[in-house]
Design a protein around this nucleic acid. Structure first.
Lengths: 168, 168
DNA sequence: GCGGTTATATATACCCCCTATCCATGAGGG
DNA sequence: CCCTCATGGATAGGGGGTATATATAACCGC
């Protein structure tokens, strides 16, 4: 979130509402809609940290807005973030917690959990296929996002198989 | 986190420190060490919500402790959580943000980003292999966690290839 | 033209997770 | 005797997420 806003502001000054629209347009429907509240909170924090600088702009025909531009410190922070590799995926997995801990409490058994979760994953997979078909073919960014989600989901499905083999 | 603690308390009453140790022992080194602070915060929230009930226990030879046990409402909440499928993976990917947004700011190019990230992922992959070898072979839970992380990582690597093909 | 929806624009409150750090006690060891 | 480690707990601060409140203006139907 912070990175995304800073990167967008590195291109050109903008205000919160514009940034939300830019994110939606760039990443398409595949990307979970960025919450507008989070954007404003993040912007004010970035300003507090001196990475961006805002200025109120009065508008006659529309509500007033606050336009931010990136600062020198902001550009440095952005370069620093980009320079270091992004951390890998979290090993923490909520479903796995369930799978390991729930049977001991007697609320369910592992096989039922796995089958339910598999159905859920397959449902999501179908949803992603529909999303890919509905999304603009030429928005390669959105298509790639969906493809990435599908790869991860397939990994989850494969893992589910392994869990079923290994446990019980 | 909430789920894990509630599930552990469904088996038997325990205090925070014990729960931390139980998590570490169950999930092994592969699991990012649960932060002890988070455990206490979560416990107090669970108690506020009436899902668990704590009681102070004085100890002569050790610091006093606070032992929690699950309530009836807690058992119901646990059953409810277990009954509904766990949400799938997040489509939000920080690296992807970098890949899409950073080149426009002139701080780097896509190929450099991808190559750096691939090296990073391969490094993590090697680390996971070492972890799997170091971890107790008989701890199937820990081995499965590592295997899951490797499957996700492989999906990330595959995705990286796709991004390289599609972008630029 | 009047009332409802939609678009523009921002702010705040609340929940959750994570890390770091502080506090306290007692046991073991150099 | 002091230092470290294990036991036990608490809190502050940062960040991410959702929901909701607050304005204004445009559009649209009846």
């Amino acid at each position: 979130m912070r990175l995304a806003l800073l990167a967008l502001l590195a291109k050109e000054p903008a205000h919160g509402y514009e940034l939300k629209q830019a994110l939606e347009q760039t990443f398409g429907a595949a990307y979970p809609q960025p919450n507008i509240g989070q954007i404003y909170v993040t912007l004010s924090r970035l300003e507090q940290n001196g990475l961006i600088q805002g200025q109120d702009v009065n508008q006659s025909r529309r509500p007033n807005k606050r336009v931010y531009e990136i600062t020198e410190a902001g550009r440095e922070a952005l370069a620093g973030w980009v320079a270091e590799p992004t951390e890998g995926p979290r090993v923490r997995d909520e479903f796995f917690m369930k799978l390991v801990l729930a049977p001991a409490t007697g609320v369910t058994d592992r096989l039922a959990l796995i089958n339910k979760q598999r159905r859920h994953y397959l449902n999501i997979m179908r949803g992603l296929s529909r999303l890919a078909a509905a999304e603009d073919r030429n928005n390669r960014v959105a298509q790639l996002l969906i493809e990435g989600a599908m790869l991860h989901l397939q990994a989850d499905l494969d893992w589910l198989e392994r869990c079923q083999e290994e446990l019980d």
